[in-house]
Design a protein around this nucleic acid. Structure first.
Lengths: 228, 228
DNA sequence: CGATGGTATGACAGAATTGTGACAGTAGCA
DNA sequence: TGCTACTGTCACAATTCTGTCATACCATCG
């Protein structure tokens, strides 16, 4: 979830400002002061987004952008150009070189972060938006709803993710810690018993439609979503 | 999606070149050879973008640009100025007259198309003129009106666009970001919470007719327009 | 049958998210 | 030029969601 943002900027003051704002928003800022340094970082680890200064010592930002676009491995990394020039023409050149967006200095931190979020959002991997059908239920991620024989069921965020996971992995027993990994995320630390509570809440929501029996307890092992 | 581009240019050779490139890129080129001809076309059908020669017989391009900007109906049509002059002062004049961009002759077709795409990309999304019926409401873009079981509801511009979007995309949950992109436009940078405020204003307007429940909050995800 | 280990439930406080009223700056309009 | 309506933001209120407990419940086994 935390995106790595590579900031390529030679002016230390601006670099610092950018890093501060980026960190503030919950992203991780990786610093580079020229194209070569940036390239080294990129070869070490692919960032999720590159914030690239137009004017850089050595090869320019545009050049780096072109290089990124030419390389198969780095082709899809979104780039936001950072330029002091207000000349519209330069902006266009920046876009043509493969940048996804550009912003002129001086910029407001708010606008910058808005653009970063916008770009990340556009490039965000499409998670399975497909409607899932299982056990007589129909779960639609886009509508964020469950259709139980014509009756619509609304769930809270966690219960929704939980049911979604179960419906996409039916007939199989999952331990509490496996469920925590898949539904909550690998990194979060919560008590295993918390799963029990959410299972109950999910059953409670499915009870009016008598679909609560779909979620079965396997004593000593975990839970299972099963039609039988 | 195919944008109509009005090309106002008196030299036939350039006109032809422009039309060729524009068509090549999948847009539709409408030709005009002077300001009057352009005006006639504009009154007949609003183009999505105007490519305007600086020097025109009769009234100049700048004059036409001013006229376009002075008129409410044509105010938001993006304009790209086409000029042979490289004089910086003229550039400024061109931009001040309301042009969104300018390009000096001779220009490369590639650069021109880049600018056209960039300007079109910045443009706020247009809504269709068709009357939409959903959830018991009837929204007429041409009359800028909502009919709620015979009761007419007036909305501000933003609330109207918001409701229009919802009614044309019912049952589906949209995040605040997505709503900003679709209703405000990709290039607009406002706080996500601003969406909440407009949702409230929209609900408030729909409340007297008890249609406010059509807009549902999906906690953690966004909002949804749904009849159920 | 009672002991034991595992599971279900209800209650809760804190966290996170959303709803609202107010406000200042702008744009549109007469 | 004033006036009115519309917008985007805030701060604060209201609501919902989460993770944990303590306790009740239940199956299994000695």
């Amino acid at each position: 979830m935390t995106a790595n943002i590579l900031v390529v900027e030679d002016e230390a003051a601006i670099q610092e400002l950018l890093a501060f704002n980026i960190t503030q928003c919950g992203y991780r800022a990786i610093e580079a002061y020229d194209a070569d340094g940036a390239w080294t970082h990129i070869n070490h680890e692919l960032p999720d987004l590159i914030l690239l200064d137009w004017m850089l010592p050595g090869s320019s930002g545009v050049e780096l952008a072109r290089r990124l676009r030419a390389n198969q491995r780095t082709r899809n990394i979104p780039i936001i150009m950072l330029t002091a020039r207000t000349d519209e023409r330069d902006k266009i050149l920046g876009l043509e070189s493969g940048a996804d967006d550009y912003i002129t200095k001086p910029f407001s931190p708010r606008e910058l972060m808005a653009r970063i979020r916008a770009v990340l959002r556009r490039r965000a991997p499409q998670m399975s938006d497909e409607t899932v059908v299982a056990g007589g239920l129909e779960l639609s991620p886009t509508m964020h709803r469950i259709n139980a024989n014509g009756v619509m069921i609304d769930l809270g965020p966690t219960e929704f993710r939980l049911l979604h996971f179960f419906m996409t992995h039916p007939e199989r027993v999952y331990s509490r810690s496996q469920l925590l990994d898949h539904v909550w995320g690998d990194h979060v630390f919560v008590e295993e018993r918390t799963v029990d509570v959410h299972i109950r809440r999910l059953r409670q929501a499915l009870e009016p439609s008598s679909f609560d029996s779909l979620i079965q307890t396997v004593r000593g092992s975990g839970y299972r979503f099963s039609s039988s």
